[in-house]
Design a protein around this nucleic acid. Sequence first.
DNA 1: TGTACATCAGTGAACGCGCGTTCACTGATGTAC
DNA 2: TGTACATCAGTGAACGCGCGTTCACTGATGTAC
Lengths: 228, 228
Amino acid sequence: MNDRPSYHHGALREALIAATEALLAEQGPEAFTLREVARRAGVSPAAPAHHFGDAAGLLTAVASLGFAELTHALREGDTRGGADALAALREQGVEYVAFALRRPGLFRLMFRQGRLREDAELEQHAHAAFEVLAGGVRRAVGVRDAAAMRPAHWQAVTALWSLVHGYAHLAIAGKFDPMCGPGGLEAFVGQGLRPVLQAILGGLFAAPAAARGTRGARSAPSRTGGTR
Amino acid sequence: MNDRPSYHHGALREALIAATEALLAEQGPEAFTLREVARRAGVSPAAPAHHFGDAAGLLTAVASLGFAELTHALREGDTRGGADALAALREQGVEYVAFALRRPGLFRLMFRQGRLREDAELEQHAHAAFEVLAGGVRRAVGVRDAAAMRPAHWQAVTALWSLVHGYAHLAIAGKFDPMCGPGGLEAFVGQGLRPVLQAILGGLFAAPAAARGTRGARSAPSRTGGTR
DNA sequence: TGTACATCAGTGAACGCGCGTTCACTGATGTAC
DNA sequence: TGTACATCAGTGAACGCGCGTTCACTGATGTAC
């Protein structure tokens, strides 16, 4: 099993993370075992313990990197949206779903209870991703910081997050396949997600229902004209 | 192990399903094993095979019942909404999330790939639940049947489904806990979900973006006044 | 109404499996003097 | 510049575990005549 030039691996930590990501991509979080990852890294089953303690430690590190990558993607979407706050939110949503479809196994791991351990770095990275979204909502409603957000603003954040999260989950689970038609899932998402996000953002930020809480929605001019 | 009055159990099939549901409720789908369920039913590990073939068979049967229960709940929401099509959709959404929070383990099982086997009854029950939602959208846009639905209508269906699905998943995963404040998750959902759904429905069904495809949202009167 | 017999629904011991983790160990590396 | 030695990062055999499934079996039930 040891056909390395040196007795030591040299970069085992990184190799184990890479092997885990590959396994997640190929077979999902259910297929993860410490032994399989050690096998892929060409190392004995006991070796990972030196770097990650146990299986949960390794998975937690990988999930943490996943959130960092998601944060990066969301920021890119935000930037692409430009000065139009709603367009920026919309592009964040597109990036969220694109990330999940690009890395379905990793995405599912990131939200899997039980396999991850409590970890300060993981929580920090997860929070950073959330903050990009919350920041986008703040820009859209003209609120300075988190302390100034009112319940309706939090509701808008949870609504947007829920929408893209659910969309990603259902798409990964193959639930949209029967509706896809020619072009497959990719075309379906590409054509459907953006306008839907746009419409929802219009409803969320233009109607009194979202801004005031439990009052009913009334006619009101939309705050955005849409950028495409 | 056999302290039953009779050698035969009498209603083992039902007992196994009940034991599985209890296990799902207590510890989630990850904790499910055939042996544990047999143990809870007071029966030998080989007994379930007579009724369900194998572990996937039992889980599939349970998931199937879960979809039937979900369908029932959605219909109740639809009815509660009354003649107002958007209110009916909104109440369906509330029911969807309520179901997931009431039976988190079962809900997660229902959307877990890998643990379920392909099964006609499962698919039929899952489709029935979906059809309640799609039917609600049809009523809202005044379309007769599935064949008459245009892409924008399917987009509305996927948007609503995604929203409540993601909301349920994130709530179950504890992601909303930091935002809950006093009253906990239940109050948070109760106060936040309904108005958000209302606002989103307004955006989805009033704005040209959702109705026409990729055009931007424009100012338009909301189609509903809200019922609370 | 009784009896023979097929079928059904369980038992419980045993199978092989892969898992995470432990253990004493050892080769390589780095550091102090 | 050498040398002793501590520390680090691996090995690989072994541990006990719980799993799903198999197997020959047996007790109970139902049916045909």
